[in-house]
Design a protein around this nucleic acid. Structure first.
Length: 384
DNA sequence: ATGTAC
């Protein structure tokens, strides 16, 4: 059998190291740490790292990275295989931003009207059967956001990325839509939360599908970006694109390991953007150090503070939906699904500044620049 | 997170 829990040899292995990278000033839910510790007891697990945006998930915590030997765990990657953040440099000066006009007309619902197969081919990605969703943002915490530069902290690194203070940027957070979900479901139907023995036929099958979903998710972000850019009449250049839900092979002290990221940005692929809520700054950061103590990973966002249910109830009591379409930064929000508008409201998230400060103090990143929201696109569909 | 479930 290829299910890890059924391999008796693995139960005698030493337990994984568990590390939560967060200062005492960062509040982390007890349940999230319990989930991290539970995952650390899985067979073959070596290191379980909670980043400062650690929060409870459905079984496995979000904002965490795990290394294992001999086994890999699709359940730790989750359903949104290949989810990540892409940043585009937009060839439009910030003073030319027309957020209210763009908010009124931008529409990324439904299939793209262009040549989807041709687009995928250009990206070097095979089609998946989920192409009707290619170029759509999705639900939950996904978004496309036009941003302006708030402040530059490292002018050299900022310039090295080809960025300019007076130009707009576009940040896209989305994943592989229904594709990753289908891949995880096929695994869970047979193995529940159990892992796969590396080099087994099932592991190879999963990894091939996983790698395809990662590539397809990246292409999805590229098409979301293209649709937004077309909508605002601009061109863009992809500056970076990183995946925060994946499992990849890596070497540790000459040994082969599997690095699982569950809402954790890579620290070994150059600069990344760590977004706050739609009403907060996003941080463009450059990784520092060799990444061995942090499973080569960083926080991927602010992390939820309130559950979706609590956010809906609390925000509904105090705010009208209309008032939530503008933020403290005077930015505009397109989210015509009211439940989602309340669930993703800025108070439902932790303070991104604290999360990034924790990473800086842990010696994991240097801040390159802060980016402010101009227009956040979530959905035009009512949904209720 | 999700063409969202029996």
């Amino acid at each position: 059998m290829s299910t890890a829990a059924e391999n008796p040899a693995s139960s005698s292995a030493p337990p994984a190291h568990v590390r939560v990278i967060a200062s005492s000033q960062s509040w982390i839910e007890g349940e999230a740490v319990r989930q991290l510790e539970a995952m650390a007891r899985l067979p073959g697990m070596r290191l379980a790292v909670g980043l400062p945006d650690l929060h409870p998930g459905k079984g496995a915590p979000v904002g965490a990275a795990f290394t294992s030997e001999g086994f890999l765990y699709p359940y730790l990657v989750g359903n949104d295989i290949g989810c990540g953040m892409g940043l585009w440099d937009v060839d439009l000066p910030a003073r030319k931003a027309k957020p209210e006009r763009w908010a009124a007309k931008l529409d990324l619902e439904g299939p793209w009207s262009g040549d989807v197969e041709g687009f995928l081919h250009e990206q070097g990605v095979k089609s998946s059967g989920f192409e009707m969703a290619l170029g759509t943002v999705g639900g939950g915490n996904h978004f496309a956001e036009v941003q302006r530069v708030d402040a530059v902290h490292d002018a050299e690194a900022f310039a090295a990325l080809g960025l300019a203070v007076d130009r707009l940027l576009l940040l896209v957070h989305s994943g592989s839509r229904g594709l990753g979900e289908a891949i995880l479901r096929a695994h869970v139907d047979r193995h529940a939360a159990g892992g796969l023995v590396e080099d087994s036929a099932e592991a190879r099958t999963y990894l091939a599908r996983h790698d395809h979903a990662v590539a397809w998710g990246r292409a999805n972000r590229a098409l979301v970006a293209r649709r937004v850019l077309d909508g605002i009449g601009a061109q863009g250049r992809r500056v970076l694109d990183v995946c925060h839900n994946s499992v990849t092979p890596c070497r540790a002290g000459g040994r082969m390991q599997w690095l699982h990221r569950k809402g954790a940005a890579p620290s070994d692929e150059g600069p990344v953007v760590i977004p706050g809520s739609r009403g907060a700054l996003s941080y463009l950061v450059a990784p520092v150090g060799d990444g061995t103590g942090s499973a080569h990973s960083l926080a991927h966002g602010a992390g939820r503070k309130w559950t979706r249910t609590a956010a809906r109830e609390r925000m509904r009591e105090r705010f009208t939906a209309e008032s939530l379409t503008r933020t403290a930064f005077k930015s505009h929000v397109v989210c015509e699904n009211k439940d989602l508008l309340f669930e993703e409201a800025p108070p439902a998230y932790k303070a991104i500044d604290r999360v990034v400060t924790d990473l800086v103090e842990a010696g994991l990143v240097r801040v390159v620049a802060t980016l402010a929201p101009v227009l956040t696109y979530k959905t035009r569909s009512q949904g209720e």
